[in-house]
Structures are given as C-alpha cells and as structure tokens.
C-alpha cells in the first residue's frame, strides 16, 4: 500500500468530503420538503391531487436517479433550465429522495390508529388541527427511523453527481484513480470518509429516535 501517496492526497479528499456533506444536507432538506408535500398530496381529499402525488412517487422511484440527474443537467438547458452541476445535483437528488420520503411520511401517518383522528374530530378539532396536534406528533416519532434509512441511501446517492463532475468524494477518488493507478488506496481514502459520515449520521438518527419516544 502506497502510504506516501495517501498522505499526499488526503487533504483533497477531506475537502471533497466537505462537499459531500454539504450536498447531503441540502439534498436531505429539499427531499424532506418534497416528501412532506408529496405525502400531503397523496393524502389529499381531491382525487386529482392524490393522483399527482402517486405519479410523482411512481415516476421518480421507477427510473434511475442518474438518468433524472442527466435530464436535469444536460437536458435542462433545452427547456430553459440552466443550472450549474452542484445546483443540478442538489435539485435532482432532492426531488428523487423526496419520492422515497413521501412514502415514508405517508406510511407513518396512515399507520396512526383511525380512532385518534376520530377522537380529535369529536372534540371539535378541524381536520388541520387534528393533523398537526394529534396525528403528526405521533407519526413523527414513527418516521425518525425510516427517514434515517432514506438519509443513509441519500448520502450514498450523492456519489452520482460525480457523473456530472461535481468535485465530491467519488469524483475525487475517480480522478486520482485515473492519474495514479492506485484504485485500492483511493477507494480506502474515500471509503473511510463515507463510512465516517454514514456512521455519524446513523448515530445521530438513533439518538433522535430514542429522544422522541413517548416515555
């Protein structure tokens, strides 16, 4: 193993890891926003809005994220959408992650016993009051763990933006593999950083999950 080389290039990997983290955070936030909207659409009382929500989930989960990214980044200019690679990465991956999160959020909401809504409505709460005061606080506790799984997948999916030349961890590894012909060393550097990010996120999710449980 070429330790000298690894010591020489690791600062670039650290910097790239910063980009991966930033990308993950922004994507997760956008994904959460899309997922919330998507879940709201899927639970709407209007059939057409429900259909839109279902179509969003089906199309974005039914096609490769890489292709979605390419359509946005390379095809976007043809329909008047000009984005730099980083922006396209965040938006493309965020909308994709949102489709998965839609199902997570919706699943948690519909798993709350129907009696909870009935009891709230019986007291005179409106649909919206029952949702945010009674249903959502309970559903939120159920969402933490599966959203953690979504987050784990999302972090790994940020590697896809290497294909549109965003200089994050995977792109950096790929470039150094090409220039040094040391695939194992470069994989090790990038891999360890990914695993640290993923491990830390997993611990944070587990902590949050414990924290929100009802005593």
């Amino acid at each position: 193993m070429d330790m000298d080389l690894m010591l020489r290039v690791y600062p670039f990997f650290l910097q790239a890891a910063g980009t991966t983290i930033l990308l993950s955070v922004l994507t997760a936030l956008l994904g959460l926003a899309c997922g919330t909207l998507g879940a709201a659409a899927r639970l709407s009382r209007f059939a057409f809005v429900r259909f839109l929500g279902a179509a969003y989930v089906s199309v974005f989960r039914g096609t490769p994220a890489l292709i979605q990214l390419f359509i946005l980044y390379f095809g976007g200019p043809q329909i008047g959408i000009q984005l730099d690679a980083f922006e396209a990465g965040v938006i493309g991956l965020g909308i994709n992650a949102g489709a998965y999160m839609t199902e997570t959020i919706r699943g948690a909401i519909i798993s709350i016993d129907k009696g909870q809504k009935e009891a709230a409505r019986t007291l005179g709460l409106s649909r919206w009051q029952a949702m945010y005061r009674i249903i959502l606080p309970q559903a939120a506790r159920l969402m933490v763990r599966p959203l953690g799984v979504n987050l784990n997948m999302l972090i790994k999916a940020t590697a896809l933006v290497a294909a549109i030349s965003v200089i994050e961890l995977t792109y950096t590894a790929q470039r150094y593999i090409g220039s040094t012909y040391k695939p194992f060393e470069m994989f090790l550097l990038a891999g360890v950083l990914y695993m640290i990010i993923i491990y830390a996120t997993g611990r944070a999710v587990a902590w949050l999950d414990r924290k929100v449980q009802i005593t």
């Binding site: 016993d113 009891a119 409505r121 019986t122 005179g124 409106s126 009674i134 309970q138 009802i214």
Partner: peptide
Amino acid sequence: EKHINQMRQDIGMVFQHFNLFPH
C-alpha cells in the same frame, strides 16, 4: 366543516377503545 366542528364541541363522545392521545 366549520359548522360541524362547532356542533361537535357540544357532543361528547366516548369510544370503546378509549382513543386517548398517547403523546
């Protein structure tokens, strides 16, 4: 919706499975 929410404030209901809010 407005009307029924108002009406329901005047009609208390108790369920077989309690439906207390667990949180």
